[in-house]
Structures are given as structure tokens and as C-alpha cells.
Nucleic acid binder design. Structure first.
Lengths: 144, 144
DNA sequence: TTTAAATAGGATAAAATTGTCCGAATTAAA
DNA sequence: TTTAATTCGGACAATTTTATCCTATTTAAA
């Protein structure tokens, strides 16, 4: 469903949402530890998210990553997924047909349509701000 | 969501369901053409499905693949997905946590739960026998 | 001004997935 | 009985994804 890069990206961003509420910066090492991910690979993913302007970074000593207050209000998982994995989740046919549509559907097009809509709705409704408190209160987890 | 191998496996099986109703065998070349897939790779997938006993094969001249009448009645997409991709779709957490459960959930566990259930239900309800007629009548397609 | 901590970015490596090739075994038909 | 069409199985190759490493750049603080 989601690539590893995307999984890390989501977890990192939810972690950052937590920290950013307290105006804290987090560096790659802290983030990778918090979400139990490979440090260097996570760094690449974070760079991608910075380039996509979903998160922000400060270079140099005492630098790190954070999410702008303004961004925090609106940032949802669909934005992260799209930034990292592209829009395949939205556009791809379940059976991989390059042209699968209402008119020329694959055999499961109609059944899959509503599921895909639910996935997108779920991702869009999941703002990182709404997910962060659960993690802070240890009601949900970013690692085992 | 599904691997390429799995996509080919599903399409091949739906095609075979069609042919098997007329007691026709199909060889790899025919199948690969019908579903627009790489021949040698498709052969591997078909071998996997034979080993899993979801489809059958006849070796030698005039040989090929087919689905037993008995099997045809019950064969659904979940069986094919599980045979090729394993049970990851059923067991995996959306964020890749190795231990994600009702008690120790990831941040999207509860939201994803019902979607996952819908996907599984959809796959289980999609028997190849139910999908084949649409393809035969050109109401749905296995390739563009 | 020097040092050290941090992000940025490029090159490379490892692993997984996707895809190809070839020879062995099987079997219908010439 | 030979031939040719076919599945089967192993080895290999290409591509993509995942992951690591190293150097450059930035910048706060000693």
C-alpha cells in the first residue's frame, strides 16, 4: 500500500507535529529513534518533505526539523503520501491497467472505486495535528 | 497495493475462468497476450498458482492451463492474492509497525481497520466466476 | 575565528521485485 | 520413434526500492 519511505515520512511528521506544538526542533537522530527507522534513509525522506514544503528545517548547530504552526493546522496524511509516493494511490487501477475508467473498467473497477474513495477520505481526514495527541498520551504508537 | 505478479495472477485467472467454462486449455503465450503481460514472468506466476492448487496444468503438446470445474465455483481473488503476495494485506499495519493491535495501535489503526475489512470482503466476494462474464461480454477488460 | 553540530546532496551498496533465458521433462501427433 | 509444443525449474539480468556513506554547506557557540 505505502512505501517504506512513505511510512517513515508519516511517522516522522506525526512525531514532528507533537514536538512542534512545544516549539521544539528535532534532528534526524531524534526522529529516527522516535519512529525506529534507519537514520540516513529517514534523512532523505525528511529532505523530500522539506522540498515539498510540508515541513521546515533549520541548518547548522541547534538546527533540525519542525512544522510551521500555520502548516500544522491543515497538514494531512494524503499530502504526505502524495509528496513521497506520488498520486498512484489516487490514480492507479487495482489490476494495473493503464487506462481503467468508468467506461472501460477493469473487472474490479466498480468494487474498488468506493474503497479507494474511503482510503483517500481517511488520509485526508487524518491531520497530523489530530493524530499527534494520541501518540503524546501513549494511546497510539509510532514504534513498538 | 498488489504486486505486479499478483496483478498478472488475477488477470490470468479471470481469463482462464472464461476459457475453462468452455473446457478450453490456454498456454502461456495466449494468456500473456490476453492480459498484456510479459510471457516468461507470467509463466512463473502461473506455476505458483498451480503449486497452490488454484489452477491446473497439462504438460506437453496441446497442454496448457485451466481451472477445474469444482475449483471454479469457489475461487476468489483473496485466494490468489494470498497465494502470490502472502497474507501481508491481511496482517500488515498501514504504517508498518510489526506489532500493531487494538491494544497497541498505530495512529491510524482504528481508521484503517474498517478499510482493510472492506478490501478483504471485496476480494473474497469477487469470485473469478463472477468476474469472467463481464470480460467475455466486453463490459470489463483485462488489458487496454 | 575556530570548532562542532547539524541539514543538503551526491555517490554507492544492498535487497527486493520484475523480467529474461535456457535446458530438462512431458506428451500429442506425425 | 522422432519431432515439436508445451510446462517446469534453475540461473541470471534489469530495475526499483531501501539503505548507507561521504563531503559540502550552514551556523551557533566556545
Amino acid at each position: 500500500m505505502l512505501s517504506k519511505a512513505c511510512e517513515y515520512g508519516i511517522k516522522a511528521t506525526v512525531f514532528l507535529a507533537q514536538q512542534s506544538k512545544d516549539n521544539k526542533l528535532s534532528n534526524v537522530k531524534e526522529i529516527a529513534q522516535a519512529i525506529d527507522s534507519p537514520e540516513a534513509f529517514t534523512a532523505k525522506v525528511l529532505q523530500q518533505l522539506v522540498k515539498s514544503a510540508l515541513i521546515s528545517s533549520v541548518k547548522g548547530v541547534k538546527g533540525g526539523f519542525f512544522i510551521e504552526k500555520k502548516t500544522l493546522k491543515k497538514l494531512n496524511l494524503l499530502q504526505i503520501v502524495t509528496a513521497i509516493d506520488g498520486d498512484g494511490l489516487i490514480t492507479n487501477c487495482m489490476l494495473g491497467l493503464s487506462q481503467c475508467s468508468e467506461i472501460d473498467p477493469c473487472p474490479v473497477h466498480h468494487q474498488y472505486k468506493s474503497i479507494k474513495a474511503d482510503i483517500i477520505k481517511m488520509l485526508k481526514n487524518s491531520t497530523v495535528e489530530s493524530l499527534a495527541p494520541g501518540v503524546a498520551q501513549r494511546l497510539s504508537f509510532l514504534k513498538n
